[in-house]
Design a protein around this nucleic acid. Structure first.
Lengths: 208, 208
DNA sequence: GAAAGCATTGAACACTCGTTCAACTTCAAT
DNA sequence: ATTGAAGTTGAACGAGTGTTCAATGCTTTC
């Protein structure tokens, strides 16, 4: 698979084009705008081909979900070229970066959340991805502040993700950029706060 | 309009029943689950009656949007029986109250956001309601802390709303309740913080 | 009791939807 | 050159969609 010598340089890999078209339509018009015909049209492909690569419409949407989840996970991926502190700070700041704060991505995320809320099957995929993302944030925190218990890292990660989700959502509603910047600073405060071991923490002992 | 003597006590006001059915379906199955026939079935009413009370499917959805927006606005409504401090604190805590933290409301809000993102017409309604809500929060802050400039109140309101939206959204994904409580405490901190006049604030001068 | 107005019904229309499938093209392997 | 598998097409089917509308039920008013 992959011997297209001179295919005018753009007609390659129609399966990806179909998935990309589905993502585009979903972000622009919501799930009701994603019909097999519309996807085919957007991808410049015959209707039958969409069902050739994706058995169901469900499969197509699942593939879209997986794709976005994968992208989300990369936000908290390890980067050995940076110190733990820098890694964490970079990850926290990237959620308001130009790559992510585009209407396309935000809208896509929103529609996928709505979809997951309406459909049991998508919900499981989404919840699993959310957990992996949360774990990723917690791991970054743990690396940057090894004196914290894992439980407290998860707590901080949960608090950070609440704010991040809020930023993503509120960006779509047109809140000013200054508020986003303040919110990012807030996530950094949470992440780098000195250990205290709030309620169920055995990490407080270690500090003495 | 309104002379139903003994109508078995439940068949009254079919228009509201239709709207309620639409809200229910929207929260449970998303926009694709809201068909005129499904709404009619859910409301126990003939198909034609839905189009009798609501010209369009669009009108029906618009009515649903307005209804939820109205409910949101009441969260930040004035309550003369409380001191400004209590009013603000109560409003901030109510977003995690049992009435609101139900799947039905959260899911509804999510689907309406998604709808507004996909459709220009709904977007305007939603943006206007969002602005009114933000103004409401800012007004509560201003009442509780009259020494703040109106601009700084809006700033704080914006920051608070980011976290609130995050709480609502993250609740749907199943984050633990403890994180919600910490996030609420965070909104209270923001609201009651002593004046400092961060960047564009002329309120900082007043503190000396 | 007749007339009138609102409420309510379900059949009917034109349309879009997801899915299937037989036909056709492309192209590497023989 | 022939075969066979993979890729690609668009017509076709049945189910579901939003909307329209003539017909009916139910009250109130004259």
């Amino acid at each position: 698979m992959g011997t297209n010598t001179v295919n005018s340089g753009e007609q390659i890999d129609r399966q990806s084009r179909i998935l990309e078209a589905a993502l585009d339509l979903l972000s622009r018009h919501g799930i009701s705008g994603v019909s097999m015909r519309a996807v085919a049209r957007e991808a410049g492909v015959a209707l039958g081909l969409v069902n050739y690569y994706y058995d169901d419409k469900t499969s197509l949407i699942r593939a879209a979900l997986h794709r976005v989840d994968e992208q989300d996970l990369q936000l908290v991926a390890r980067d050995p070229s940076l110190t733990p502190d820098e890694q964490l700070r970079k990850a926290l700041r990237r959620v308001a970066g130009a790559e992510l704060l585009t209407t396309r991505y935000l809208s896509l995320r929103l529609h996928l959340w709505a979809l997951a809320q309406a459909d049991e099957g998508y919900a499981e995929i989404n919840a699993a991805a959310f957990d992996r993302y949360l774990d990723g944030v917690a791991a970054l925190v743990s690396n940057a502040k090894p004196e914290l218990s894992w439980e407290e890292c998860r707590e901080r990660a949960a608090d950070i993700v609440v704010i991040q989700n809020g930023m993503w959502l509120t960006s779509l509603l047109g809140v000013d950029n200054a508020s986003i910047q303040r919110s990012i600073a807030r996530t950094e405060e949470i992440a780098f706060l000195p250990s205290r071991g709030s309620s169920s923490g055995d990490a407080a002992l270690r500090e003495l």
